[in-house]
């Protein structure tokens, strides 16, 4: 028990130090813009279809759930606004993070882990390059920037999914569904969603690059790194969600003078 707790603390410490190294690398010797755009394109294309599909169904589910609630109060007109607000503030960023975690997080961890155990990273160092600059930083920034593109795509699809459910399940028309979206989805909701999306992407990018880069012990070590990445990113994202919610609520209360 104590040993595993010790390992978890050491792992978190290692991740924080690794994050610091990435930030330092980015500030002192950043990578080329082309490398970041390549990674962003790769990650976005890899995950676009699954994110869009998941967004569509999540939007639909939100609408179904809200329909049951708002019908009781005869407030079906607010259905679109409520479902969209919930998706933008919470479900959207969380969904994108989980999607990226399962697909890009595991892929990045396996790719870097394989490079580590087959001595490709050592070779990069011996050939006069810096692996942090050549490998880690472009992937780290690529995951973060692509998460915003995926968030937008996922949210648009969720609105579409919600709209279709609104029409077929709740029986309201397009105009009625869209009418209260601008009034309920305020700037704060959008900012909150973007902030959460950024924090989740940073957590995910740090964990998957760290786990891959520190893999050792051949194929078994790579497998272990991928499993650890999946577990750590899920836990990390949920903890980050809780933290950002607490911080967000506190900031809102201070802002409103409550």
């Amino acid at each position: 028990m104590l040993v595993s707790l010790n390992n978890i603390i050491a792992d978190i410490g290692g991740g924080v130090i690794f994050f610091k190294q990435i930030v330092w690398q980015g500030l002192t010797k950043p990578c080329r813009l082309q490398e970041i755009t390549d990674q962003t394109w790769k990650v976005t294309i890899q995950s676009m279809s699954t994110t869009a599909m998941a967004g569509f169904f999540v939007g639909g589910i939100s609408t179904i759930q809200f329909t049951m609630q708002v019908k009781q109060f005869g407030a079906l007109g607010y259905l679109g606004g409520l479902a969209t607000s919930g998706t933008i503030r919470e479900v959207g960023p969380l969904l994108i993070a989980f999607m990226l975690s399962g697909k890009v997080g595991a892929y990045t961890s396996a790719e870097l882990g394989t490079m580590k155990v087959t001595e490709q990273i050592d070779a990069i160092r011996c050939l006069g390059a810096n692996p942090m600059q050549e490998l880690i930083l472009p992937r780290f920034l690529g995951i973060i920037s692509s998460s915003f593109f995926l968030l937008v795509a996922g949210l648009l699809m969720s609105v579409l999914g919600g709209l279709l459910m609104g029409i077929f399940f709740a029986g309201i028309n397009v105009h009625e569904y869209l009418r209260h979206i601008p009034t309920i989805v305020a700037g704060g909701s959008v900012l909150s969603g973007l902030f959460k999306c950024f924090v989740f992407a940073v957590v995910l990018a740090t964990i998957c690059t760290y786990k891959g880069y520190s893999a050792s012990g051949g194929a078994k070590g790579v497998g272990k790194a991928v499993v650890n990445t999946a577990v750590a990113t899920m836990v990390g994202i949920v903890v980050a969600d809780w933290l950002t919610s607490v911080i967000g609520d506190s900031v809102t209360m201070v802002y409103l003078g409550m």
């Binding site: 001595e119 490709q120 050592d122 070779a123 990069i124 160092r125 011996c126 050939l127 006069g128 390059a129």
Partner: peptide, 26 residues
Amino acid sequence: RKKCGMVFQHPALFDSLTVFENVAYG
């Protein structure tokens, strides 16, 4: 490292690059 070239136990070639790019890398 410029003076000491190292040949690893694994070929350690970069999968995404061609043979030409691998040799040109250093």
